[in-house]
C-alpha cells in the first residue's frame, strides 16, 4: 500500500482508456471567456482548480479507498456538485473508468458498485475502489485524483490556445509540490471521515467552474465535453 507503485503510473497515465481526454475541466469555457490566455493564466486556473475541485475529488477518492461505503461517498459527491452538467459528466466518467478498470483489475467490489449504480458512480468514487483493487492506498489515489484535476485542463489548453506544450508541462511541474500537499490533505481528511463521518471530507468549490459548466453544456459546438 505504498504511494510509489507502478499500478499508480498505469492508473494515472493520460492514455489509460477512461475517457478523460474528452474533458477540459472547465478550461474550454475559461479560454472562451478570456480568463485563460497564456501560461501564467493557465497556472492560476489550474492552481484554483487543484485547491477546489481537485481537493474535493481527491478527498472522495481517498475516502472510498480507505473503505468507506462507496454509495455513501457517492451521495457526498452529489452534495459537492451543484451543477447537473458536472454531475452527469462525473457519472459518465465513472462509468468509463469502471469499464476499463474491471478489465485491468477485476474485483468483486467494482462488480458490486457497477450493479448498484448501473448509470455510473461519480468518477472519484470509482477511482477509489479501483485503487483498492489495484492495491493502492488513499494517499496514492489522492495523488491520481489531484493530478487529473490539473493535467486535463493543461493538455486541453495546449489544443485550445495552441499553447507551447513545454509551457503547459512546466505549469504542471511547478504545481507538483501543491499536488503533494493537496493529496496529503485529502488522505488525512479520509482518515478523519472514517471516525467522524463524511462531513469531515473537504468540500472546496470554485463558483466560476460551477457556473460556466452550465453555459458550456448549452454550447451547440464544443471541442470538449466539459
Amino acid at each position: 500500500m505504498s504511494t510509489m507503485s507502478a499500478a499508480l503510473l498505469v492508473l494515472a497515465d493520460g492514455r489509460f482508456p477512461a475517457g478523460g481526454h474528452a474533458h477540459s475541466g472547465g478550461a474550454e469555457a475559461a479560454v472562451k471567456a478570456g480568463r485563460v490566455t497564456d501560461g501564467a493564466s493557465l497556472e492560476a486556473f489550474c492552481r484554483g482548480r487543484l485547491h477546489t475541485a481537485g481537493l474535493t475529488a481527491a478527498g472522495l477518492a481517498a475516502a472510498t479507498a480507505a473503505g468507506i461505503d462507496p454509495l455513501a461517498v457517492d451521495a457526498a459527491a452529489d452534495a459537492r456538485t451543484p451543477s447537473p452538467a458536472l454531475r452527469a459528466a462525473a457519472r459518465r466518467l465513472g462509468r468509463q473508468l469502471m469499464r476499463a478498470a474491471r478489465a485491468a483489475w477485476p474485483s468483486p467490489e467494482l462488480d458490486a458498485l457497477a450493479a448498484a449504480l448501473p448509470r455510473g458512480a461519480h468518477q472519484p468514487v470509482v477511482l477509489g475502489l479501483v485503487a483498492r483493487a489495484a492495491g493502492l492506498g488513499p494517499l496514492a489515489v489522492a495523488h491520481a485524483a489531484a493530478y487529473e484535476a490539473v493535467s486535463g485542463p493543461a493538455t486541453a489548453v495546449v489544443r485550445l490556445l495552441s499553447l507551447d506544450p513545454f509551457e503547459a508541462t512546466a505549469v504542471l511541474a511547478r504545481l507538483a509540490p501543491e499536488l503533494d500537499a493537496v493529496a496529503s490533505a485529502a488522505a488525512d481528511a479520509a482518515g478523519a471521515a472514517l471516525v467522524e463521518g463524511l462531513d469531515a471530507l473537504p468540500a472546496p468549490a470554485a463558483p466560476l467552474l460551477d457556473i460556466t459548466a452550465e453555459q458550456h453544456a448549452a454550447w451547440p459546438v464544443r471541442l470538449f465535453a466539459t
Binding site: 475559461a30 485563460v36 492560476a44 486556473f45 484554483g48 482548480r49
Partner: peptide, 12 residues
Amino acid sequence: GAPGWDGGAVLG
C-alpha cells in the same frame, strides 16, 4: 493564503 482564489477557475 487561499491558493488560486482569484484565477480563472474560482473568481476571475
